[in-house]
């Protein structure tokens, strides 16, 4: 039952991303060429609406319908990889003309190029997981000062 709820959520979000223009390649190119700010409006408006909601949630601490426990908001921590990672993400974002969510939506729209983007996304995530697992194993054998984002995140929160 819960799984169906999440599947439905994905469908609604995918539909909205498409209507927002986030699955139209040209909007990405035109945003980064400073010709059209549709996508920035989308992110800005969505974040602003979210801000109001987040304030209400922090104030009234409601429970979620599915979990029946108060909603917990966990802001992401600052990590060493944040700046290099975000720049790297941005380069990929500009190259592929899609982000991790919209690539999947594009596939449903028949934009088959997204298939390659998704393959790349899985590869990138997989490489990170393998490298991090190896690093974690090495640091367990010999504790070093190098901290991985995940360990840092765990410590912070």
């Amino acid at each position: 039952m819960k799984r169906i709820v999440f599947l439905m959520m994905g469908i609604i979000f995918g539909f909205l991303l498409s209507r927002a223009g986030a699955t139209t390649y040209d909007y990405y190119a035109r945003l980064f060429l400073f010709q059209d700010f549709q996508l920035m409006f989308i992110i800005g408006t969505a974040a602003a609406v979210g801000m109001v909601g987040v304030r209400c949630i922090r104030k009234y601490r409601p429970s979620s319908l599915l979990e029946r426990s108060p909603i917990v908001l966990e802001p992401k921590p600052f990590t060493k990889g944040l700046i290099p990672g975000s720049l790297m993400f941005g380069i990929g974002w500009g190259l592929a003309g899609a982000c991790p969510g919209t690539a999947l939506v594009m596939l449903g729209e028949g934009k088959l190029g997204a298939l390659f983007t998704i393959i790349g996304l899985v590869m990138g995530t997989y490489i990170y997981g393998i490298l991090l697992s190896r690093k974690a194993r090495a640091s367990r054998a010999e504790p070093s000062e190098q901290m991985t984002p995940e360990i840092e995140a765990k410590k912070a929160g």
């Binding site: 992401k76 921590p77 990590t79 990889g81 944040l82 290099p84 990672g85 975000s86 720049l87 790297m88 993400f89 941005g90 380069i91 990929g92 974002w93 500009g94 190259l95 592929a96 003309g97 899609a98 982000c99 991790p100 690539a103 390659f116 983007t117 998704i118 393959i119 790349g120 996304l121 899985v122 590869m123 990138g124 995530t125 997989y126 490489i127 990170y128 997981g129 991090l132 984002p149 995140a153």
Partner: peptide, 14 residues
């Protein structure tokens, strides 16, 4: 390559 950079970058950035 674009996807790969996004996958890797998203994990690094969290």
């Amino acid at each position: 390559v674009g996807g790969l950079l996004m996958g890797l970058g998203a994990r690094m950035a969290g």
